[in-house]
Design a binder for these strands. Structure first.
Lengths: 232, 232
DNA sequence: GTCTATAGCATGATAGAC
DNA sequence: GTCTATCATGCTATAGAC
């Protein structure tokens, strides 16, 4: 591999700046300067800032979806006779997202960007992302249903919603958690800082194990509530 | 109550636009036009756009913190002899946030804004918000510790992290969930649309009950994992 | 306190030479 | 494909009349 091409340099720079500052706060000038390419190159290669935003997501979401589906299919083919466990399904769903931080250059940036994007309110982004994730989401939803056969569809819907929230929050913050804690200065929070520092230093797989355990218990509780007489 | 003053009109307009478009995408012109006040009024009353952003948060976060602490102290004073249950603590923590949607005009907007703010990556906002929430967070952390006496501090830290993520995601999306589902057009997702519609139509208290149940189970699972030999 | 007008600058996009 | 130069517009903030 020689040097990166202009297009890739632009995508990398945009990814980094978007995850630090957001989309509208990031100017095309800042992107081209960071990428060390000419201002006009952005419009030449992508047509517009908006199209560049799309390209930034497209580059990563495709592989993410594929990896999630690959892990799911692997589970289903390994033991065709019985269903994957809840924990196995959560692992297939959550691992590719949290491991984005390891997916080579810029992966960490994109993980943060992705975490924020999940909580994006603007119609424009929300609808675009929903469209990208929907098929995979639906596929997993059916698998979860088989792993929790007595769960009510509505309960499962909300349960997955909570899982995605916990995942997105973790993706958005797991990297800057440490620096935030370091920056604290309150006198009476030395214990808290010590705990937070230890928690923020855990590696991806440890946090992943925590998130899987937390989510599985939460989903089972939602599922169990039905049998006890429903949610109301 | 006669008509709202200029300052309040500006705060309301800013809250609405920020929650729809984000901070940098919202211009002071758009704010003053929506508020139907003069362009210069914003700088006269708040000094700058940035100071207005602070004011938007300050107006709501104070009461939110107070309400959380009030509910917590109520629990502790009602039965001074034994600790509140995990569910009671979660209720005290989560209710004021999710009920923002009912806190009069603009409350729904602010709830969305708040949900997004929790996942904000920009240093500027992240540090400001962390500072605002930290004392209350720490107070609840100690209370959770008493409700889960054998839990490891680090486990609890991550557990609360996941709870906050699920909460923020719910705050950011509970309002536009229905409209998103309506907008779907895939042919083969009629069942999904039906489920999503039913889930999205649930009222705040039903969702709150779900979130409390989910979170309590998740936290207990994190706590139990220690007794079984730790997380690694 | 409220308004108009505008300064001073950054923005996204493009035309046209090379 | 890459560059410079520039357009048209939008931005935050402020000066100064009322």
């Amino acid at each position: 591999m020689t040097e990166k091409g202009t297009k890739e340099r632009l995508l990398d720079a945009a990814e980094q700046l978007f995850s630090d500052q957001g989309f509208s706060a990031t100017s095309v000038r800042a992107i081209t300067q960071t990428a060390e390419v000419n201002l006009a190159a952005l419009n030449y290669h992508f047509g517009s800032k908006e199209a560049l935003i799309d390209a930034v997501f497209a580059r990563r979401i495709g592989p993410l979806n594929q990896e999630r589906l690959r892990l799911l299919e692997e589970l289903e083919q390994e033991r065709p006779d019985d269903n994957p466990t809840l924990e196995e399904l959560l692992e297939a769903f959550l691992t590719p997202a949290l491991r984005l931080s390891r997916s080579g250059s810029g992966g960490e940036q994109f993980m943060r960007l992705m975490g924020r994007a999940h909580n994006e309110s603007r119609d424009f982004f929300r609808k675009r992302l929903a469209k990208q994730f929907f098929p995979v989401f639906q596929r997993f939803e059916r698998a979860f249903h088989r792993a929790l056969p007595r769960v009510d569809s509505q309960d499962l819907f909300w349960g997955i919603h909570f899982v995605v929230g916990a995942m997105a929050h973790t993706m958005a913050h797991s990297l800057n958690m440490l620096e935030d804690i370091e920056a604290m200065q309150e006198e009476d929070s030395r214990l808290f800082k010590r705990i937070g520092k230890a928690a923020g230093s855990e590696d991806v797989d440890t946090v992943l194990a925590r998130l899987i355990r937390f989510s599985a218990a939460g989903l089972r509780a939602e599922a169990a509530a039905v049998k006890d007489g429903g949610v109301n």
